[in-house]
Computed example of a mutant assay.
Amino acid sequence: MTFSLGLDGRRALVTGGTKGVGAAVVEVLREQGVRVIAAARSVPDIAPDGVTYVAADLATAEGCNTVAKTTLQRLGGIDILINVLGGSTAPGGGFAALDDDEWAKELNLNLMPAVRFDRALLPAMIAQRSGVIIHVTSIQHELPLPQSTTAYAAAKAALATYSKSLSKEVTPKGIRVVRVSPGWVETEAAVALAERLAADAGTDYEGGKQIIMNALGGIPLGRPAKPQEVADLIAFLVSPRAGAITGAEHVIDGGTVPTV
């Protein structure tokens, strides 16, 4: 029996909703009776009941506008906006490897979609004086890896600061804005990375995971988070049970960040 969070009948948009954390969020919301639009660059051919997939390039203004309009048309409004979309294609090599194009890519993937969707969908939330926005950031904004995640980390830091400012503006109008900051999560992409590192080092998958954990300075929990664990946290935060939570960041990293 599914534990009810009081979300039945709510309307949600989840970006990056076809893989990893995004797919887990879509599934837990669907189980809670939420009508969900899941947007990503590529989408499955068949959608489960209660879910509509929309294919678009969310790193562009045109893609975000298309998805926002489709969401309002198909759902007749919106109650929950969850911006899971993010990632990095930047090369390793530190600051010198990051030209203007690489910086633009990181910002257009990790900051601007949230800004654009908020701008497009917040008016509907404000009109009904209710809604919840989740921005998925990353512990990288506190714990950047200079050889590989400088631009990604900076973009996520910008998203965190923007989210805090937005919460101060719109919470008095009935909209909660909350940040979720994962550490390393065992998504499909993370598994592929661990397997590649393991092959390069002549070890097994568990050895590959250990290489990543060592690069992060260790994870006291001893393992990465599961997508379902992050999704369960997000589902709670968008529910009425978290009705007094806004403007805050919730870290789910197994203890990776070593400071208060």
Rank of each mutant, 00 (worst) to 15 (best):
A157R: 14
D101Q: 14
T137S: 03
A68Q: 01
Q140N: 11
I80A: 04
L166M: 06
I126L: 11
M112F: 14
N83S: 12
S42K: 15
A120P: 07
W103L: 07
A55R: 14
A59L: 09
I133A: 01
P144Y: 04
I133P: 00
Q140G: 04
T171W: 10
G50R: 08
S167Q: 05
G77L: 12
G63C: 12
Q147L: 09
T71L: 04
L159Q: 06
C64T: 14
Y162F: 15
L143W: 07
E106M: 11
V51I: 11
G63F: 07
P44I: 15
A61C: 10
F117W: 03
Y152L: 01
A59P: 05
G92E: 00
P91T: 06
L159H: 07
Y53H: 12
I78W: 02
E106T: 06
A157L: 13
D57S: 10
A55T: 12
C64N: 06
S42A: 12
V67R: 06
I133Y: 00
A151T: 05
R176I: 03
K105Q: 09
I82E: 01
T137Q: 00
T150L: 13
L107G: 02
H141S: 07
N110A: 05
A68K: 01
R129I: 11
T71Q: 06
N108L: 00
A47Q: 10
L58E: 02
D79F: 07
I46F: 10
P146V: 09
D118A: 08
L143K: 11
V43W: 06
